[in-house]
Simulated scan of single mutants.
Amino acid sequence: MQPTLLILAAGMASRYGSMKQMEGFGPAGETIMDYSIYDAIRAGFGKVVFIIRKDFADNFKAVFEPKLKGRIEIDYVYQQLDSLTNGYPVPASRTKPWGTAHAILCAKDAINEPFAVINADDFYGRDAFEKAYTFLTTACSPKQQSIIGYELARTLSANGTVSRGVCDVDGENNLVSISERTKIYAEGEKIVYEDAAGKHEVPYNSSVSMNFWCFDASIFKLTEDLFATFLKEHGQEEKSEFFIPIVADTYIKQELGVVKVIPTSSQWFGVTYKEDAPGVQKSVDDLVAAGEYPSSLWS
């Protein structure tokens, strides 16, 4: 069974200031998402499921369906504030849905096979998709999930600080925990992050999460159970979010299985800030010039 690619594209792009998922960076106007889908297709993925906002659906479909028709199976899932809340009273002041793990849960009826999860606005690279495909088709099971681990130094922005989930990995390449570090940046030859206690160095070769996960479909049941608990405990907090690492952390701590950290040599890039856009465009142009991608992906 071919694995599925689940793309989280319902975000509001608050820091970037516009709908960056739809911005063209490639020579023929390709979005970052186009490159991810292209890499997934050539790696062997059989279906792509987009998680989007309902009010954005027609616009989104008009852009992607003509390109992808006949190349890969397509499905859509809508992440709304009241999706799968089972009658929970949503705070009147809340406008955003409940985060990345809630987004995954919204796809539970659309996916029955092993699947990868990625962000719409991150460029992950061919190597990452090939490794994800290999894991999903040979090693993924209810007892074994994975995350693609990026080298921290390959994930920084020249235009500001970034937030990264720094992975604690044991001797067998199993994930122990993810520590969310905000305000990470390069300072001379070092990489540091800042918090309330001050400035701290992060090892240059740290493995970090860029939200590229590989899951067995059995993860939906655990996610559903945890979301119900999350709503009871944090549902009245205006900005609380139910993140994928919460699910992974519970999976590990309850000894339901292991989460393998699969290292990739891929260079990540993305548009955290508007000022990142020219650099992203140059990175894509360089990959096209080097023959990694055709100058027009879908023609």
Rank of each mutant, 00 (worst) to 15 (best):
N205Y: 08
C140R: 01
I191T: 06
Y185Q: 09
S295H: 04
K221Y: 05
L297V: 02
I191S: 10
L81C: 00
I52W: 09
P3I: 05
Y16N: 06
D58I: 10
K108S: 11
A158F: 02
Q2G: 02
K274D: 05
Y76P: 04
N59G: 08
T161C: 10
S83N: 07
M33F: 00
K274Y: 04
R71D: 12
S163R: 14
L8W: 00
A92C: 08
F227Q: 09
Y76H: 09
F269A: 04
K67Y: 01
T223H: 11
K183Y: 09
P245C: 07
Y35C: 03
M19L: 03
P91L: 14
E201T: 15
G24Q: 04
A128G: 02
A186Y: 03
Y133T: 01
R71S: 08
F60A: 14
E194H: 07
Q21G: 01
A101T: 10
R94L: 14
A277P: 01
A196C: 06
G165L: 02
V77Q: 13
F45M: 01
S240M: 00
Y185L: 11
E30M: 00
P263G: 06
D34S: 08
E224R: 06
I191V: 14
D249W: 01
F115Q: 07
P114V: 03
L256T: 02
Y88N: 10
N205R: 07
P142T: 06
K47V: 02
K67H: 02
K274S: 07
R53N: 12
Q80F: 00
N119A: 12
L136H: 07
L287A: 09
T95W: 09
T223V: 05
E233R: 07
G46P: 07
V117N: 09
A10I: 09
K190I: 05
L256W: 08
Y133V: 00
Q80K: 12
K253M: 06
F115Y: 13
E73N: 02
A228K: 09
Q281R: 11
I111T: 03
K69N: 07
E130R: 12
A197W: 04
P97T: 06
G257Q: 08
R42Y: 04
Y38H: 02
A116V: 08
N173Q: 15
G160P: 15
E113R: 03
K20V: 12
V288W: 03
D249P: 08
F25S: 01
K20R: 14
D122P: 00
D285R: 05
A289L: 06
A116M: 11
K47G: 02
G291D: 01
D195S: 06
A139Y: 11
G24E: 03
Y88E: 13
K221G: 02
S265G: 04
V271K: 04
R42A: 00
A9S: 15
E23L: 03
Y204M: 07
F212E: 01
D121G: 06
I7Q: 14
S83G: 07
G99I: 04
A289T: 11
S283T: 04
T182F: 12
S146C: 15
T138P: 08
Y38M: 01
I191C: 05
K143I: 01
G46V: 09
F50N: 10
N86Q: 12
Y88M: 12
P66C: 08
K274R: 12
F242H: 05
P91V: 15
E172V: 05
V77R: 15
D39K: 13
K260H: 06
S163W: 13
V162R: 13
E201I: 14
T264L: 05
D55G: 15
L81I: 15
